[in-house]
Write a protein that binds this DNA or RNA. Structure first.
Lengths: 223, 223
DNA sequence: TCGAAGATTCGACCAAAGTCTAATTCCGTC
DNA sequence: GACGGAATTAGACTTTGGTCGAATCTTCGA
């Protein structure tokens, strides 16, 4: 694993913040190359074109990454690459869950440049990193069904994950088909496949199942 | 407002915990009458039959109360009655939101009997009450759209709120119709009315809109 | 007591969602 | 370079969802 250099990917849809992250990376590793992506689609294009990365900084609020499901999906696709979650949220709950879903670190967007540099240095050395005020969580927050759901999401194909994301935004099959440039019949076929993998019967239940990821124990489990 | 006595309603689906709450109430106010309900439906039956209460202890995980939406709905229906949220969740976020949505107090289920008694005493005197480790929140957590949504939920009729709850569990119109003993056409009509009030076009968007209540800023707002 | 407004109910009709089958393309392996 | 399996695509068909108009029922105040 690259200790001093390598190619680092910054995936965030906010241009200013992407720039700040890039600077932090370059300060920590002057020799490193930094590439940028402003959506999950762009990120996948880069890797499809053969780009290889030694570290990914991932914003969970970015287009295409829908909360923790984006992390789960990415974690499975790039298993050997350290993955750092960058997020505006500083909820302890979210941070713990991100780590349990396999993030190598968590950098809050409110962090100072120095802290970001420090975090990146730690993580690139194979250590994990958490915000200073956050204690490492001992007892797992996630239950068996959470991991089931994670496995389901990880098993989605790229196109299916894209479709699921648009479903989670409440779009109609017709709209999704138009945006992806395929027929409505195709989207329906993807939907059926997604429902099978998530273990639900229809789109409403799919959305409910997904929301349990982020909400978790707050509102109690649905029987 | 009854300072020393009155009728108090304990609404919780867990029998053991209902008993514990009842004891706490009787210890705080030996003169008081305690009535019990194990679902929102039962609670509404009691008030429909003319019962009047001076304080309601409400569990948000109870059947029929779907998270914070249950609080919003109840708060609007019984505006002059102090409403205390009792919940297994101790997330600061949830507590603050509950208070912003008009709860008069928040009692975590992990609290000791003494603490519960103290909380009930405070609230019955018109004061608010929070768990000891929770600081009163200064800046509002909720945005304008949250209050819009709250107004929408408050404007639902009892039957519509029931239907919305079952929708949020992922049930089909057919199933909801069967459970409520009406025709499927009726449920569809309720759905249309609910969508209008929530400002959405279909059931999937309705579920998404509701989830923003509980999740709030955790995963960021949808475009 | 008599409306008036809202709540609840329902049937008919149209739109959207979901399933099944199957063709085509893509990718890694032998 | 051919083969096999998975992904993507799509058409035909069935089921579910959603809107409209309208009939009862309730409730509350004139």
């Amino acid at each position: 694993m690259a200790l001093h250099t390598g190619t680092i990917l910054v995936a965030d849809d906010h241009p200013l913040f992407r720039m700040a992250l890039k600077q932090a990376v370059e300060q920590a590793f002057p020799e490193s190359k930094v590439k940028e992506a402003e959506s999950v689609d762009q990120l996948e294009k880069l890797t499809d074109q053969g780009s290889e990365f030694d570290l990914i900084l991932l914003d969970l609020n970015m287009p295409g990454a829908h909360g923790l499901s984006g992390l789960i999906y990415m974690r499975d696709r790039y298993q050997n690459i350290p993955l750092v979650v960058v997020s505006a949220s500083e909820e302890a709950n979210v941070i713990y869950k991100a780590m349990e879903f396999g993030a190598n670190g968590f950098i809050p967007k409110s962090a100072s440049m120095d802290v970001m540099v420090e975090a990146i240095e730690h993580i690139s050395q194979g250590e994990s990193w958490l915000p200073p005020n956050i204690m490492p969580q001992q007892n797992p927050l996630l239950g068996e069904q959470d991991h089931d759901l994670a496995r389901s999401i990880a098993s989605l194909t790229p196109q299916q994950f894209r479709v699921l994301g648009m479903l989670a935004e409440g779009q109609l099959n017709k709209q999704i088909a138009y945006e992806l440039g395929v027929s409505e019949a195709t989207i329906k076929a993807h939907m059926t496949a997604i429902f099978r993998k998530l273990g639900v019967r229809n789109r409403t239940q799919a959305v409910i199942r997904l929301q349990n990821l982020d909400v978790g124990s707050i509102a109690g489990q649905v029987h």
